[in-house]
């Protein structure tokens, strides 16, 4: 199970990287979102998988009893997802503005800043 999931995560990374390397602006943003998803999955899988038992104490429990899923990666993941959302939303809007200003989909048109003026 873990191995399969690792491979799927790896594929997510791969596809996201492929999109990021694409020169289409839209693909770039897709790539960034997928990349965020992949890192989240990585974190989740790396933190260890426990089927079913969530980290919520039942009414009669005072302390958690094994087996239960490690709540720490979950909490981290939650934070990371939210932060990722903030970044992605901003990135999406940036892309939109770039479209508006440059009237182009092509990232290669955005290579003026680094020119060396003589």
């Amino acid at each position: 199970m873990e191995a399969l999931l690792s491979i799927v995560t790896g594929m997510l990374f791969m596809v996201s990287m492929y999109f990021i390397l694409h020169r289409h602006l839209f693909k770039l943003i897709l790539g960034l979102i997928l990349f965020g998803l992949a890192t989240n999955l990585f974190m989740f899988v790396a933190g260890g998988l426990t089927r079913g038992n969530s980290a919520i104490l039942k009414q009669d429990q005072e302390v958690a009893i094994e087996p239960y899923a490690d709540p720490v990666p979950q909490a981290l993941l939650l934070t990371a997802i939210v932060i990722g959302f903030g970044l992605q939303a901003f990135a999406i809007v940036i892309i939109k503005r770039v479209y508006q200003v440059y009237k182009s989909n092509n990232l290669d048109d955005l290579a003026n800043n680094d020119n060396i003026e003589h």
Binding site: A38, V72, P73, A80, A91
Partner: peptide, 28 residues
């Protein structure tokens, strides 16, 4: 500014992702 920001955002989001995976690794 937009052009600069796009590059900045992309590369730094990459960095953040790598950090996050690194943290996941360190924790586990």
């Amino acid at each position: 500014q937009l052009e600069g920001t796009i590059k900045y955002v992309t590369i730094n989001m990459l960095a953040s992702g790598l950090l996050l995976t690194g943290i996941g690794m360190v924790y586990s």
